[in-house]
Amino acid sequence: MARVAIDRLSKTFPPPTKGGDPVVAIGDISLDVEGNVFVSIVGPSGCGKSTLLNILSGVETPTRGSASVTEGDRPAHLGYVFQDARLLPWRTVMDNMMYVRDDGDAGAAKAALYLDMVGLSHTHDMFPGQLSGGMQQRVGIARAFSVEPDLLLMDEPFSHLDAITARSLRDHLQELWSATRKTVLFVTHDVVEAVQLSDRIIVLAPGGRIFDDITIDLPPRSPRQKPLVSRRGWPLRASGRRGPPPPSRGTRRR
């Protein structure tokens, strides 16, 4: 069970123009996430969502405060799905999957398994440029899952896609998640998407502060998983049998 501990974290970028004000991407955030929960982070553009994930993954360093991701007493193992696919264009799909692992041939089977799960088992030897945007994004998702991370970071993974592809990938994410039950931090603009997927929603406000922290305590979540787990017709499942309507009775805790 991964644990994310963020303590009075802030991140300031140097002013974009000479003599301007520094950009406060994150202003004093404290947050704890523990266990196998799906947490969404929503908020308007520029409020520091991507920056937060970048700090957690070690891409950026904090200006003040601290952020740590642990699994027991070791640093947690991360998977990261970016806003764009971020594949190496000069490597085939399979080589891209292998680039993020260190276990050689033993890992190849695992990589193939996850590619299969996103319906891309026929693309092993293709280059990213030969795939559509949605397919590339699916490779990115498969890559993140295939490292079997303790914590999965996802930064608006569906925002560049059309509605139908986004929906089928969302369903697919739910399948993968219910099969693996990672700790997930999921950034999105889309409140409906957040409600559909999460156990908890963190709302950020401009200036990188926590505006609200909502726990969705929704027992009927489980029956909803049934039709979603059964895998049929991917990725053509557009009829999308939904579960109960979005919760109107999320308990709110502040």
Binding site: N54, S57, G58, V59, L78, G79, Y80, F82, D84, R86, L88, R91, Y99, V100, V147, L153
Partner: peptide, 21 residues
């Protein structure tokens, strides 16, 4: 830069980033 960030996030070391990116 985004590919370098991806590599960092997945714990690739400098030699790997140099060679593959």
């Amino acid at each position: 830069r985004r590919l370098v960030e991806m590599s960092t996030a997945y714990g690739r070391n400098e030699t790997q980033v140099f060679r593959h990116v």
